[in-house]
Amino acid sequence: MTADSVADVKREILVRHLEAWTPAALHRARRATYAHGYADAAPELAEAALRVFTEQSDLVRGRELTMVAVGQETADVARRLAAIQQGAEAAAGLTVHTVGGGTDGALAIALKAAGSARVPLLGFLDATAAGGPPAVTAVSALAAGKPAEAIIVLPAEGFAADDYRAELRAAGFPLVAAVELAVDEEPGEVLVFATASGKSLEGFKDTLWAVDEYAGVRYRDPGDPERHLIDISLNPHPGPLRRELLGHLAEVGESTVTELRTFALTETVYRAEDATRVLHALLTAGSVTRRPEQGRLGGDVVITAA
């Protein structure tokens, strides 16, 4: 795997999501918090996040935006972030805290000290260098935000999609989607997005497919039994979604179009609109049937595997 290329994809996903999240969060509330975990493992990602905030300084006037960067040893991270702040136009209302002691142990304490409960809160936890997923306490601390979102990156090996989705839902994030970042047949890092908002999940999926391609990095749906690699595109290859929709219908018997769109959004790497596109193709091919047989493919139309 090309580590630099995967890092580029992660950075662009983070930056694009922050560019959308920041104005929305500060429009919703007077205060908002961004939490960046494992900051010392990849300080360039924390720097990229802070640059988004300094470049949008006009958006935080009259509002308070707090960035909390947590890691094991954060002295170097603190110097890097301070340099960015010094080199940029002062952003009114922007505060940056760096906290040592490790993300798993210190994140919850740092967020409480920053007064992050019940305000818009976004966490980015790239745990690939940690060798395993973030501690439940760290993820649960992020769920204290209102609304709360989390982007979590897991190591290439040992990811069980269904098990980790269940853990995140228990921690307070009912909607979870995941994508594997890969360049070949070997397992890749898994990027997970967790939220309580369907609108936020839709926005993240749009971001996911809008990023640029980097040196052959492609996506893989963790739920695809054939582990098909998908080129990053605004119109992604539908093969894995086709298989997953048919597999889901084989399990449940029948589903409405709305239920299948929700399945695609929350259980696959695809968007709800991709499910509609695939359903039209499946109906044309005779792979599924619909009830009623005629009319627009509305949300209440029932789909059954042929």
Results as ranks from 00 to 15, higher is better:
L282Q: 03
R169T: 14
I109E: 13
A35F: 01
V257S: 05
L201F: 07
Y270H: 13
H237C: 11
D206A: 09
E259S: 12
V252S: 09
A138Y: 00
R242F: 05
E244N: 12
A143T: 01
T95F: 14
V302I: 15
L279G: 02
G100C: 06
E189P: 02
V52Y: 04
V119D: 01
A281P: 01
F193T: 02
A148H: 07
V176P: 06
R220I: 02
E202L: 08
E186H: 15
A46Y: 00
L282G: 04
F124M: 10
G101R: 10
E213D: 09
A25K: 03
L121A: 07
G71V: 12
P147I: 05
A196N: 11
K146W: 10
G239L: 11
P120Q: 07
A117H: 01
V278F: 08
T195Y: 02
G198S: 12
G198D: 05
L168E: 05
I84E: 07
V302W: 06
G131E: 13
E254K: 12
G132C: 10
S200F: 05
A90Q: 13
L279K: 02
S200I: 01
E186T: 14
V269Y: 02
I84V: 15
H237I: 07
V77I: 06
Y164E: 15
V278D: 04
T98M: 09
V139W: 00
P134V: 03
R30H: 13
L282P: 02
A82T: 12
T304C: 10
P292N: 11
T66N: 04
V9H: 05
V52I: 09
E64L: 13
L18V: 01
G62H: 06
T289R: 15
T276V: 14
T195D: 02
D58P: 00
E226W: 11
G223R: 07
P174R: 11
F173Y: 12
L297M: 08
A275C: 08
V9Q: 08
H27F: 14
R51C: 04
L81G: 00
T128C: 12
G198F: 13
E47I: 07
G223E: 04
S255W: 00
A144K: 14
A210G: 06
A130M: 09
L18I: 01
A281V: 08
V9F: 03
P120I: 05
V302N: 08
D40F: 05
E202A: 15
S287H: 15
I152F: 09
V176F: 08
H248K: 13
D206R: 10
V278R: 05
P240E: 04
A29C: 10
A108C: 07
G158M: 10
A144N: 15
A196L: 09
E73W: 05
A48P: 09
L246T: 11
R296K: 12
R220W: 04
L59A: 13
E47Y: 07
S5D: 13
E254D: 11
D224A: 04
F53H: 10
L18H: 00
E19C: 09
A138S: 10
D126E: 11
R165M: 02
L50M: 08
T33V: 15
P238Y: 03
E273R: 12
L45P: 00
